[in-house]
Structures are given as C-alpha cells and as structure tokens.
Simulated scan of single mutants.
Amino acid sequence: MIGPAYPAAREVTPMVLAHFARHLEAARQQGRQDLASLPEAQTIEAIIDAAFWASLRREEGYSPKISLALLPPEQAGQPLRFARRLPLSPSSLSKVAPAVERQGIHLGIWLDSNDLSMWGTTRTIPRFCFVLEVIEPGLLVVKYRRGQDPGKFVNVAVLKGDQIKIVDEQGTSLPDCPDLLTRLLGFGSPDTQGDSVNVLVQLAVSMRAHGRGGSLLVVPQGSEVWRESIVWPVPYSVEPSFSELAELMRTDAGERGQLWQEALLDAVEAIAGLTAVDGATVIS
C-alpha cells in the first residue's frame, strides 16, 4: 500500500463488517438470492485506505470521484473487463477514475493471488455488495445496493478525514422519528421490502448530482398552512402545479416498464433542478 495507513479505515472496519454480516445473514434466512459475499476485515480496510489516499490526489487537475464495488466478475452480469488487472493503489485509482465518474458505474475489485486488484467496470452488482464511493477529497461513503433497482443504496458509514459517522438503523424506529427520514434512509420502508420506487431517494440523488446544494420542503397535500411560513411574493412559483411525478407514481407496479422509468427520471431531474435555485423547492 502506498503512503501511510489511514487510521479511520482500521477504526471503522469492525463496525462495517458487523453491519454487512448481520444483513447478509438475515437475507439468507429469508431465502434471498443474488447475494454478495461477506468481505473480510482486511479487505474492507485496504479498500478504504486506498480510496482515501486516492481521493487526495489530482489527475489532470481533477479530484477523483469513484465508486468501488467488491465482487468477482462472475457476479457482474456483462462487465467491461480489463485485459490486465490493475493493482488497487491510490495512483491506479486516480488514473482510472474518469472512466467511472458517471452514475451507476462501479470499479470492480476482487482478490487476485491474495492481492486486491481492479478487474474492470460494471453496472450490475449483487444485493449487499460492499460499495465505497469517493465523493470528494477525504470524503468517503460505505454503502450497499438494496432491492432490484441498481440505483438505490443504503448508506452504512461516512468518513470525512478523521471523522467517522455510522448511520443508525435503530434510530428510525424511535417514536418521534419522522416517516420521511425513515424512507430517505431506506430502513423499514416499503421500498426495502417490496422493491418499489422510493421517489424521495431518487430526488435526493439527483439533488446531490447538481452540486449546488438545495432544500426540498415536503408539505401535506391539500393543506395551505405552510404558506404562513413563506416570505411572499415567491419569485419562482409554478402554475399550474407540476403533477407529472405524482401521476407517474400512481402507475400500477406491473405497468412500470422502461418508458415509465425514463419518464420518472425526467420528472425527478426537472424537480431536482429547481432545488439548485436559491431558497427551497416545495412539493406535496
């Protein structure tokens, strides 16, 4: 490994390993198929360490943004495979980062003669596959795929420099935890059990993608009380109300094909784009 060890990687590894072990065991007991293998502790630490030091490098003036997935090529559907595997090192990661910056593309990592290496790229990963995303220099997120939608993930831990934050699953079961927060975190929501589309997660992902920050205020349908908290006049109000997203979500699950998914993405991006403007976007 190039460079000194990243202390936070060693500190967070036992917690991450316990999280994946617990969920993989529960999934097996439920008869779930297409499950990832449980990563070893030293593997988790090595991936986090390499990704952290890679995030601090710059390649042609750009900081790398990478999504690393721990899986063998055999579990990756139809992957793009390198003719020769690349070593898992900060320098190699920063070199190939531009190839996996686009949403939904992961850099495949697996053992090769007892050493971790990069074997190619993939859009397909199994359930509970260990994924590490490099967001910006020094900021990493450990997560895993949930459900059938390849774009939906549950965050496990966030590392920023020497700071470690573990997502508290149990916190969403507290009586005063808002249902909206539970849905956004992906715990205990219908989406986790039935693989239905969680439009709030889609909106959050799209909002993050524009990189300008933003706020989304969700108000009860049919209520006008929220207007009392708004400073009027509103310079960017929409009339009539944009209802395409709501209409798409009323579509029966059996009728949600490829065209429906594309229409949903367009509607989500239209709303998420508004959040880049100063202030908050209000939806019901």
Rank of each mutant, 00 (worst) to 15 (best):
67 S>T: 14
196 S>R: 05
282 V>G: 06
49 D>A: 11
88 L>I: 09
184 L>F: 03
248 L>E: 03
229 S>Y: 09
156 V>G: 02
208 R>C: 08
85 R>D: 15
145 R>Y: 01
216 L>I: 06
21 A>M: 09
165 K>A: 11
42 Q>C: 13
283 I>Q: 06
56 L>S: 09
67 S>C: 13
262 E>H: 12
151 G>E: 10
201 V>T: 04
19 H>Q: 07
103 Q>L: 12
1 M>A: 15
195 D>H: 12
9 A>V: 05
6 Y>R: 08
78 Q>W: 04
219 V>D: 08
102 R>F: 09
218 V>G: 02
78 Q>S: 14
278 D>S: 15
203 L>I: 11
80 L>A: 13
136 E>H: 11
6 Y>K: 09
263 A>W: 00
195 D>L: 05
121 T>W: 00
166 I>A: 03
70 L>V: 03
185 L>N: 08
113 S>R: 15
49 D>Q: 09
29 Q>I: 03
131 V>F: 00
171 G>H: 11
95 K>H: 09
164 I>P: 03
15 M>N: 05
212 R>S: 12
212 R>E: 12
194 G>K: 09
83 A>C: 06
36 A>P: 01
246 A>V: 07
54 A>K: 00
176 D>Y: 12
244 E>S: 14
148 Q>G: 14
82 F>P: 02
82 F>K: 04
77 G>T: 10
134 V>I: 10
70 L>H: 06
100 V>R: 01
282 V>Q: 06
249 M>P: 03
29 Q>Y: 03
41 A>C: 11
194 G>D: 12
110 W>Q: 09
217 L>G: 01
216 L>Y: 03
173 S>G: 03
231 V>I: 10
81 R>V: 11
110 W>A: 14
79 P>W: 02
98 P>L: 11
43 T>L: 13
117 S>W: 02
58 R>T: 15
168 D>M: 08
